[in-house]
Design a protein around this nucleic acid. Sequence first.
DNA 1: CTACACGATTAGCGCGCTCCAACGAATAGA
DNA 2: TCTATTCGTTGGAGCGCGCTAATCGTGTAG
Lengths: 332, 332
Amino acid sequence: MARPTMEDVAELAGVSRALVSLVMRGSPKVSNHRRDAVLAAAAQLGYTPHQMARSLASRTSTVLGVMVSDLRNSFFAEVVEGIDAAARASGFEMVLNTGGRSPARERAALRSLLSFRPAGVVLLSPVLPTSAITEASAHSPVVLVSRTTRLAAVDTVNDDGATGATLAVEHLVSLGHKRIVHFDGNGASVAAARRQGYVSAMKRHGLSPWVVPSEHTDVAGAKAVRSVWDGPDAPPTAIVAGNDFNAVGAISALEELGLRVPRDVSVVGYDNTSLAALRHVSLTTIDQPRAELGRLAAEALLERVRGERTEPVRHLLQPSLVVRATTAGPAA
Amino acid sequence: MARPTMEDVAELAGVSRALVSLVMRGSPKVSNHRRDAVLAAAAQLGYTPHQMARSLASRTSTVLGVMVSDLRNSFFAEVVEGIDAAARASGFEMVLNTGGRSPARERAALRSLLSFRPAGVVLLSPVLPTSAITEASAHSPVVLVSRTTRLAAVDTVNDDGATGATLAVEHLVSLGHKRIVHFDGNGASVAAARRQGYVSAMKRHGLSPWVVPSEHTDVAGAKAVRSVWDGPDAPPTAIVAGNDFNAVGAISALEELGLRVPRDVSVVGYDNTSLAALRHVSLTTIDQPRAELGRLAAEALLERVRGERTEPVRHLLQPSLVVRATTAGPAA
DNA sequence: CTACACGATTAGCGCGCTCCAACGAATAGA
DNA sequence: TCTATTCGTTGGAGCGCGCTAATCGTGTAG
């Protein structure tokens, strides 16, 4: 298990340790002769530079700390993939943690990440209090994804939920719908923007907004449908769900009520998760560019690391409408 | 950004650096008097030990390297969550990578992980050649998840795919099915065990096995259904799909053919992903204990790290049947 | 043949920490 | 009183590497 060190490579190649260091860092001021000898020796020993020693000596880091609330949520998993791709392209690695949507656990996870003295930290939809984020930003560049802040030292990357919800409403209105209900995401940090986008789009078209409290789960979506159809009001002809899971739950409940989608009721989701793309679901939804969110988060950190920028950035990505099989004109 | 060091804490507390080190590592041989002074100084400066310096000096590591082929696959994401939980419980961190099912990329990812001199490495369903795994195992303990090996230096954690497929067949047979087809996962490393379990279970019941080549995607599942129903043979009354995605694709294609599930055809998936649990899908499937897979992988590494074991372990987890709404007796 | 320049190479310090040998002071035993 | 022993504490070496300043060797000009 004892891996070789630079010293071993230097000895085998018959050069000094410093020269091996130069070769490993790709310095141009090494003769080809020596370079080949060093590379051959390194290959023979199976030598790879020790990242930790390297970053200790160079006082730099090739680590990006990433804290994600819940990896099982495919939305976050795909953002992480985006971060990974961007990090890899620049020679960085991810140290990854989960916070479980608990402030205490997130705090511990963040501390743990910072103990690696990372080049930067990405926080995916954290529930941490602002004070903890402020403190972290004193030690390391911080990027927030799916959460906004006014902190000047912190970058943010979000999708424009208001525009996304507006797209959903516009689509339904153009199909002829007038009674459109929104299932609100309640606690979720992205819910407010979506709700606000829905409300103002409705008003813009002279329609009365109808917001039903719900959650970002399929169970909650089903429950919201039952509460609406059990209620005293004439039922809507279309639903703008809080996210895809919520939409799928709503569709199940509608079918159990004997209603057909989209013949009787149209449904629009949000996120365009892989679930929505399944032909069995084939959900009309709002696409959030997840990999792009991740990429921009990583890029934002790298810009800070390279000292290219000190001003905060506020990326607001534009979502897009993906029309599939759950929307159609209202029943005559 | 310049974080305080042990030296700073020592100076503020009026003690030596070595004493601060002892306090940070929770040594009992420190007087309460001094300990309090050190902790107070550390708190005042916001000091946290530098993990990389620590592991360099101690020649130990608190890093677990994790390479996952594709995080977007929720199966892997959930295994990673299991690893994370176990690692956190023992004070370890994950350095995480993706290999993208490409041998070249996986090789680079593995090298990158090893450059951190991790305590151990977890490879989730790698497509790497055995030689690369052998080489890695010379440098660090290695655990393979969802892939088998004969390498004595490498631990493995798998679910018992043969038993899982057998459970599916038994369930269908007990419902009265006789014509049961299996959609094979082809390239997937777990496919062979499932196929073999299916075949021997069928034979055990005096039924003739019928294996259709497919893939672990919903598109492939749909295609397999069409090829079977377009074929010359009398169609089956039940399908044992390669995994949940394959099953969902099959169900869509069946419905497009005017067949009802489970009235006309029963379908069993594999993995019990969150998809299967959605009420809109409500798929009968084989549950693979994913978090447990992850936990055992982490544990296996930690046992090696702690020197508690040098023999390889071969964990084979028992899957279980989850009956939902896609299976019933065959049509009379 | 000497002086000089310049590129290739090396010695050695320090990154933040762990660990070990060794220290002084206090207590115990003789 | 003197020697052991224990306990809490400290100095210093060294983990594997990056980096700066100094050194070496070679070719060119004078």
